[in-house]
Simulated scan of single mutants.
Amino acid sequence: MDEKIKNVIENHIENNDVCLFMKGTPDAPQCGFSMAVSNILKILEVNYKSVNVLEDQSIREGIKVFSDWPTIPQLYIKKEFVGGCDIIKEMYENGELKKILQDKGISSKKD
């Protein structure tokens, strides 16, 4: 991955408390896995930045190298890679995702 793409990815992660690299947009996801993670964040009412990896092939490939994770979507919270779709779904279901958001000072829907 070239330095320019690495910087673009780092800027997205560093400048947004919650950043989701996904296929498509939250309003028009282009894959079911991206839609699932986006919907979980909507349910929790979390403000997040989405990055549509389909708009730039170098970001699409670069994020996989950056995180050493082979799939998209990828969720970052406070600069930390949290996981992909299966991990996020499991963390949501067991309450761990909400706890991480709270622990990191990210406002989400209160039960």
Rank of each mutant, 00 (worst) to 15 (best):
residue 103 D to G: 04
residue 100 I to F: 11
residue 66 F to I: 00
residue 70 P to E: 04
residue 3 E to G: 00
residue 66 F to Q: 00
residue 65 V to Y: 15
residue 6 K to H: 13
residue 65 V to E: 15
residue 87 I to R: 04
residue 105 G to H: 09
residue 91 M to T: 06
residue 59 I to G: 09
residue 20 L to N: 04
residue 66 F to D: 02
residue 15 N to L: 12
residue 70 P to S: 03
residue 9 I to H: 10
residue 2 D to N: 14
residue 60 R to C: 08
residue 23 K to W: 10
residue 16 N to P: 07
residue 29 P to G: 00
residue 3 E to S: 09
residue 96 E to H: 14
residue 5 I to C: 14
residue 91 M to Y: 13
residue 30 Q to R: 09
residue 61 E to P: 03
residue 73 P to M: 12
residue 5 I to D: 15
residue 108 S to R: 02
residue 33 F to L: 13
residue 49 K to P: 00
residue 110 K to G: 12
residue 46 V to D: 03
residue 98 K to R: 07
residue 71 T to E: 08
residue 103 D to T: 02
residue 11 N to K: 12
residue 79 K to R: 14
residue 37 V to P: 08
residue 54 L to M: 14
residue 67 S to V: 09
residue 92 Y to L: 09
residue 11 N to A: 14
residue 105 G to C: 12
residue 79 K to T: 08
residue 95 G to T: 08
residue 76 Y to E: 11
residue 11 N to W: 06
residue 59 I to C: 08
residue 99 K to S: 10
residue 58 S to K: 09
residue 100 I to S: 05
residue 65 V to F: 15
residue 17 D to M: 10
residue 73 P to R: 08
residue 72 I to T: 06
residue 82 V to G: 06
residue 2 D to R: 02
residue 46 V to R: 04
residue 10 E to W: 00
residue 68 D to Y: 05
residue 30 Q to H: 02
residue 40 I to W: 12
residue 39 N to A: 11
residue 75 L to P: 00
residue 17 D to Q: 10
residue 81 F to I: 02
residue 93 E to N: 13
residue 25 T to D: 08
residue 31 C to M: 06
residue 77 I to K: 02
residue 94 N to W: 00
residue 78 K to M: 07
residue 110 K to N: 15
residue 104 K to S: 01
residue 26 P to F: 03
residue 49 K to F: 01
residue 9 I to W: 10
residue 64 K to R: 05
residue 10 E to S: 13
residue 69 W to D: 02
residue 53 V to K: 00
residue 50 S to L: 03
residue 14 E to V: 12
residue 62 G to S: 01
